[in-house]
Amino acid sequence: MIGVLRRYGTIVGFVGIVLFFWISLPETFMTGRNWLNISQQVSMLTVTAAAMTIVMVMGDFDLSVGTMASLAGVVAAVLFKLGFGVPLAVSAALATGLVGGALNGILVSYIGILPFIATLATLTVFSGFAFLISDGRTIFGRDIPEAFSGFARSGVPLGDLVSIPALTIAALAFVLIVWIVLEQTVFGRRLYAIGGNSRAALLAGVYVRRLRLAAFVLTGVGAAIAGLLYASRVASANPTQGDGLMLDAIAAVFLGMTMSEEWEPRVHATLIGVFILGVLDNGLTQMSVDSYIRDILVGAIILAAVASSSLWRRDTG
């Protein structure tokens, strides 16, 4: 019994949180509409956390995802302001993610700087660029084309009243792609091998450096996508708006990792981690709980999940 609780502690906790809100908010919480809302609210975090999962599979970190999201949004907005169209602005933002991710990858795998340090440095660099090209201002209003900001407000109709938000669909599509890449491809298998033992992986014929670089590139592009979704949702871009995504993304991946016996990051588990955070935000707001209490609870839940899973590992390992 104890073992079950430890093994599935995080899932049990998630179900417990959902039940709690269901009981506390009987009319408004467990509705399709509210869950669609939650899915839309966490869409940027979902993409960021899924992207973060890619590098964490290798046992690495990318602390720069948040500022990369900010930078990508600002890049797109500045191009809008200069009169360029949506395809070009979006492509440029994605290219920014690619270049930034490649920079992280080169620093980590070819130059050999610890990911924590390398991406802490690029975190600052990306943020600096975001401030530089935006002049530190929020770009909004008429500068942002309707075609771009309209995306976040659009959706696929489901019956007469409800529609599945475009942001939800985009986030789930991204998770699906990451899931396929990590779980179904040779590339993903090799990333997990690097995470398992990078020395052994190299000796067993894995191009460790090359793959690490590729993984960081994917994470950078993911962060840029998250930044674009964010900019579309707020129909504006300022140089700090995505910064907060990073810590929540790491928290979500950690929560997901506690669900695996070997502490492996799995993107579907990350998604549950994201929803734990999103449901807490949604439910606690609806219950009029002080938003600062939410922070305390999130921290406590992460500690509880990690502690129970560590205890379980100690007993079995």
């Binding site: 809302n37 907060g244 935000d281 707001t285 609806q286 938003s291 600062y292």
Partner: peptide, 20 residues
Amino acid sequence: IDTKGDVGAVISRIEDMVTQ
């Protein structure tokens, strides 16, 4: 409700208030 600088979260919290 303070979203601590997060403008995107303002939308989310308004949605939650609409739900309420």
